[in-house]
Nucleic acid binder design. Structure first.
Lengths: 137, 137
DNA sequence: TATCTATATCGGAATTATTCTTATTTAAGA
DNA sequence: TCTTAAATAAGAATAATTCCGATATAGATA
């Protein structure tokens, strides 16, 4: 996924082009790290002083639904980043301070592949979500 | 971890014994699934009609710090469950409706070990948290 | 057992993230 | 250019969580 692909997808799906949508996407495309709605708002405030939270939330939720952004949450806050579409299956090391990510090409749970030296691991989450038989699909 | 071990740990660490703490722990020990603060409050309301949210939050945070509960979050809500201390390394399938968990003994990312038939997987999260070199430990 | 004190709890206010509502604006097609 | 459905702004509403001041109490001590 890159900026142009994302804009194409929006058009293809019938959504309107707006300067704000482009700018939100441009920010995510430029900073390949997890960011919150507030982060985005603050980055855009200089250019769009009137920008409302609603616009940010509405759009990033839309982008996540369309597969443009990936979503996670920690510290009680939802965070988003531009979708990683590398060919190989991978996962992320996520910095809890700046949201920056690093790729892991293998599953680190069996052997942890010589821990990266430039990242201090404090925890991990490996969870699979869905519905049990009692709760139905 | 079981109820008695948890109560022992509290005493050992110098925390006071209260009926509410015991009851919170009893509930988690009895229901091996993820539950929110509200879930706990509602289960305890009949017995303790005056129970405040503050008490629930304060205690489950404490229990999580002490390693009695494990914590995660989805749908914008923090959820807790009694710590799984099985000998083998494992992870969870988590039902997004009831919070019930099932164990996975292997890393499901390489081959997914014959998907369980009684669980509909809708997504997963495999993330490792910590601090990058720029943000320090 | 009675007293003391740090801790725990209550009740409600404050905070923070997110969603909703209504009026207004605007992108894009006719 | 005109029209209209979609997008936005502004602020209210909601919901999870934390904070705060006053009161209650577990557990230590006399």
């Amino acid at each position: 996924m890159n900026l142009d692909q994302a804009l194409d997808l929006l058009k293809r799906e019938g959504y309107k082009f707006t300067g704000k949508r482009e700018e939100i996407l441009r920010i995510f495309a430029g900073e390949k790290r997890y960011m919150s709605a507030k982060d985005i708002l603050e980055l855009m405030k200089p250019e769009y002083p009137q920008l409302s939270f609603d616009t940010i939330y509405r759009n990033i939720s839309l982008f996540a639904e369309l597969g443009i952004l990936e979503e996670t949450e920690w510290d009680g806050e939802r965070k988003y980043r531009f979708l990683c579409n590398e060919v190989h299956h991978h996962h992320h090391l996520i910095c809890l301070t700046c949201g920056k990510t690093m790729h892991l090409r293998a599953c680190p749970l069996d052997g942890l592949l010589g821990d990266p030296t430039d990242f201090t691991i404090t925890g991990h989450k490996f969870e699979i979500y869905g519905y049990c038989s009692a709760c139905g699909a």
